[in-house]
Design a protein around this nucleic acid. Structure first.
Lengths: 349, 349
DNA sequence: ATGAAAGCGCTAACAT
DNA sequence: ATGTTAGCGCTTTCAT
C-alpha cells in the first residue's frame, strides 16, 4: 500500500538518479559516464563536458552499493572498540579516521561495550557488510572468533590489547615500561608503600602494568605486598572501591598507582571524600593522560599513551595489508611517556 | 599481476561462498536458499534442513552488498557528530546505538571535528553508501546541504543544535532553561557579579544558554555587564583564556557560569593556576555533567544534559521516519537538570 | 512447494 | 574514442 502510494506520486521521480539517466541526458553511453567519473583518460573534452553538466543537473551521486558489488570490494573499514565513552578510544578513533579518510575510506564504527557477545555481532555484521578490513580493540571474544575472520582473509588489526595465540597485525603500548616509570618515579620521591589499583587480571594490558609495578619494586629490593594490590574493573566505581580498601588499611600506602584513567577518577573521589590532601597525605599517579588531568588540583601526574598515534598506526597497518594481503605480520609497540605534574609530590616541596 | 597470482592459487577457493554454492551443495535452487534464510514459510522441512546444513558447512554469510542492491535499502544508519572526543557526544552515540541495534541496524559513524567541509564529505559518503537515514549533530554546514538530503528523501534527524530554516526532526535540550537554573542558583547564593563564559555566538546552543543567563539576571533586576561576558570556542583552551580575562578584571566576578564541559576544564585550570579557592574566592558551575565532575575538589556543580536519552530519542525518530516518510516533523526538547555539588558554594558553609 | 529468470546500478572486457 | 554487453550476488515475481 505504502508502495503503491509512492508509485502513484511518480509524476516527479523521487528516487535517486542512476548512471543510465545521466547517460541519456548527456547523450552518451553509461560506460562513458563511468569513465568520466573515474577520471579515466581517453574521453574527449566535448563528451566529458556534457557528462559533467548532466551530473550537475541531476545532482547525481553514484550508487556505491552497486559499485561495491561490481568491484567486489569497498572503501569502508570497520572498527570495533570496547568503550566509546573512554577518551582513550575516542582519541584512537581520530587517528584511525584521519589516515583512513586520507585514503578515501569511510569508517564503520561499532561499540562492543566490553561485551564479547556484542563484539561478535559487530564482527559478523562488518564482515557481511563487506568491509575492506577491520580494526578491533578486543573485549574478550574467543580467539576462534578472530581466526574465522583471518581465515576468510579479512584484513584484521588488533589494538590496545594483544590476543594471545593469534597472528595478525597488532599495535599496543609499552604498558610494563610505562607502569615501571611511574612507580620508579614514586620510589625516587621516597615512597616505600605504594598501592596498586590494577585492572582485571584477565586483561593483557592490566597484567603488563602490574608487571611493571612489580619490577620497579624489585629493582630496589622492595617486597611485593598483596594487601597493597587491588584488582578492579577498569571503571570508575571499581577504582573508587579499590581506593577505599587501600585507604582502610592499618598501614595505608603513602602513594598509589592507578592502572587506568577511569579508575583514577574513582580513586580521586575516594581520596577527596576522606579529606585527604594530595600529595601530602597520599600521592597518586595514573595511567593514561586525559584532558582533565591539568584541571585537577593538584594537576595529575600520569603515564601518557600515544592514543592518536596508536590509531593512526593501526590504520596504516590495515591499509598496508589490504594492499598486500600476504605481508608478514607486525606487532608495533608504542612508547609511553611519564608526564610529571604535582599529584605525585615533589622533592622540592 | 596480483590478480593473476590470486587466480592461480585457486586450488582452494579463498573467496567467500555465494548463495549459488550453497544451493548446489544442498541440491536446491538459489531461490530456496534465499527463502530459508529469510525465514519465509512454505519451504519443506526436508529442503530447509539440507539448506541449513550446507550453510553451516560452508560458513556461508549472505553478501549484504548484493542484498542491499537488490532490495534498494540498507539496515545501516549514518551518524555524523561534530566532536568524537567530547563525552557529550559519545554518550549520545551509545543511546543511538542501543536503539538502532535493537532494530537490527548498524551504525556508520563519522566525526566532522567541527569542520563544515568534513561534515559535507561525510554526508555525501553516507548518502552514496545508501544508508537508511542520517542523524547529524550540525557543525556549521550550509542549510542547503541538509536540504539536499531532505529533497533526496533521505530521512534526517538533527541533534544538539537546531538548524534554522530547516524542517526535519530535531532533538535538543532546554538550553535556556538549564542556564537559567544555574545562574538563578548562583544568585540565590548571594552572588551579584556572575561571569559568563559563552560559546561562539554563531552556534545556536550557545545563544540559548546566554539567553538563559541574561534572563536570570533580569529576573532580579541585575544589569547585563558586557565585561562579564566572554565568548570562546567551546574548547578547553578557549575556556582557559576567557577565565583569565574574567579574573583579570578590576572588579572580577565572584562566580562564573561556563557554557560547556570543555571550557569548564580550561576555566578550572586558570583558577587553580592563580591559587584561587573554589568556591570561597570564586564559585563555578558548568554546563554538561561529566564523569570527572565528582572527582574534582570540590565536586563540580553542573547542568546535566540527558545525552543518552537525546541519542536514543533521535534514533527512535529516525526509525519512525524510515517507516513512515511523510509523518509530520517533530522537535523534541529534553529537560536539563541542575546537579548541585560544592563548587557553587553553599549558604550553610 | 520449488525453480527459472529478470534485474537492482555499476564497471570492465571486448568490440567497433 | 566510444559503445555494447556481461555479469557482481542477491531477492522476487512468475511459472510450474
Amino acid at each position: 500500500m505504502t508502495r503503491k502510494q509512492r508509485r502513484s506520486r511518480a509524476a516527479v521521480d523521487t528516487s535517486a538518479p542512476t548512471i543510465k539517466q545521466v547517460a541519456e541526458q548527456a547523450g552518451v553511453s553509461t560506460a562513458t559516464v563511468s569513465r568520466v567519473l573515474a577520471g579515466a583518460d581517453g574521453v574527449s573534452v566535448e563528451l566529458s563536458k556534457r557528462v559533467r553538466a548532466a551530473v550537475g543537473a541531476l545532482d547525481y551521486q553514484p550508487n556505491r552499493i552497486a559499485r561495491n558489488l561490481r568491484v567486489r570490494g569497498t572503501r569502508t573499514a570497520g572498527l570495533v572498540i570496547s568503550d566509546i565513552q573512554n577518551p582513550f578510544f575516542t582519541s584512537a578513533v581520530r587517528g584511525i579516521e584521519d589516515v583512513l579518510q586520507a585514503d578515501g575510506y569511510t569508517l564503520l564504527l561499532g561499540n562492543s561495550d566490553e561485551n564479547p557477545a556484542r563484539e561478535r555481532v559487530y564482527l559478523a555484521t562488518l564482515r557481511a557488510e563487506g568491509v575492506a578490513g577491520i580494526i578491533v580493540a578486543p573485549s574478550g571474544a574467543e580467539v576462534s572468533e578472530y581466526r574465522k575472520l583471518a581465515s576468510a582473509r579479512v584484513p584484521l588489526v588488533v589494538i590496545d590489547r594483544n590476543v594471545s595465540g593469534l597472528s595478525v597485525d597488532v599495535v599496543t603500548v609499552a604498558n610494563a615500561d610505562g607502569a615501571h616509570a611511574a612507580v620508579a618515579h614514586l620510589i625516587g620521591l621516597g615512597h616505600r608503600r605504594i598501592g596498586l589499583i590494577a585492572g582485571p587480571p584477565s586483561v593483557a594490558t592490566s597484567g603488563e602494568r602490574e608487571a611493571g609495578y612489580a619490577k620497579a619494586l624489585a629493582a630496589v629490593g622492595l617486597p611485593l605486598e598483596a594487601e597493597l594490590i587491588r584488582y578492579a574493573d577498569f571503571r570508575q566505581g571499581g577504582g573508587y572501591a579499590a581506593a577505599q580498601a587501600l585507604l582502610d588499611l592499618t598501614a595505608p600506602p603513602t602513594a598509589m598507582f592507578v592502572a587506568n584513567n577511569l579508575m583514577t577518577l574513582g580513586a580521586l573521589q575516594a581520596i577527596h571524600e576522606r579529606g585527604l590532601r594530595i600529595p601530602a597525605d597520599i600521592a597518586i599517579v595514573g595511567f593514561d593522560d586525559m584532558p582533565w588531568a591539568t584541571s585537577l588540583q593538584p594537576p595529575l601526574t600520569a603515564v601518557a599513551q600515544p592514543t592518536y598515534e596508536m590509531g593512526a598506526t593501526a590504520a596504516q597497518l590495515l591499509l598496508a595489508r589490504v594492499r598486500e594481503p600476504d605481508r608478514p605480520n607486525r606487532h608495533v609497540v608504542l612508547a609511553t611517556q611519564l608526564i610529571v605534574r604535582a599529584s605525585c609530590g615533589n622533592r622540592m616541596l
